[in-house]
Amino acid sequence: MIREVHETEQNNDGEIVAADLAGQYLTFLLDREIYGIDILKVQEIVGLLPVTKVPRTPAHVHGVINLRGNVVPVIQLRAKFGMQSQEDTRKTCIVVVQVAGASKGIAIGIIVDEVSEVLSIANDQLAPAPEFGSSVDAVFILGIGKVGDRDIVLLDIDRVLSWGDLTMTRQAATA
C-alpha cells in the first residue's frame, strides 16, 4: 500500500484536511497525550542509550548516540514542543525515525515517554488538525485519529524534525 502522507489540500473553507492519511501508526505517550507517527517512517525503537551532548545546538537537541556504529542525533520531543521536561523512567525510550534529508533519508532519534502500540487508522476515523487547543503547534499535525474514545495526534514528523532546525541557533547567534 502506497500512501502519500505529505499530500494535503485546502478545502473551500481554508481548512487543511488530510488527503489520504489512513494507515498504520506507531503511537506513543508524551505528557499524557497520545501521538502517532506513520509506521513507515519508523526505523526502530531502542532503549535509552548514553547520549553525548552536542554544544551550541538548540535546547531540544539532546545529543548524539552510537547506534551500532552510526552517529545518530537525538531530539527531546518534550523540549521541542515546549512541554515540561521530566526525569527519564524505565519506559522512556528512543524512537528512531527516517526523515527526508537534503539528498537522502536521515535517521533521527526522538525521546518519548512511552511507546504504546501500532494502530490501524481508517479514513472514517480521521479528523482535520485543530487550529487551537492542542499542546502542539498545528503546523506539525497531520490530523487527529479517533480510535474508540482516544484522540491520537498524528505528527508530520518530517516537519517536526526539519533538519535545518537542528542547528538553527547558529544562525540566530550570529545574525
Partner: peptide, 15 residues
C-alpha cells in the same frame, strides 16, 4: 561525520 542533521555545528568537526 556528525550526520546531515547536525553537520555544520560550530566548533565540532565530527564524531
Amino acid at each position: 561525520s556528525l550526520g546531515d542533521a547536525l553537520k555544520g555545528t560550530e566548533g565540532i568537526a565530527g564524531a
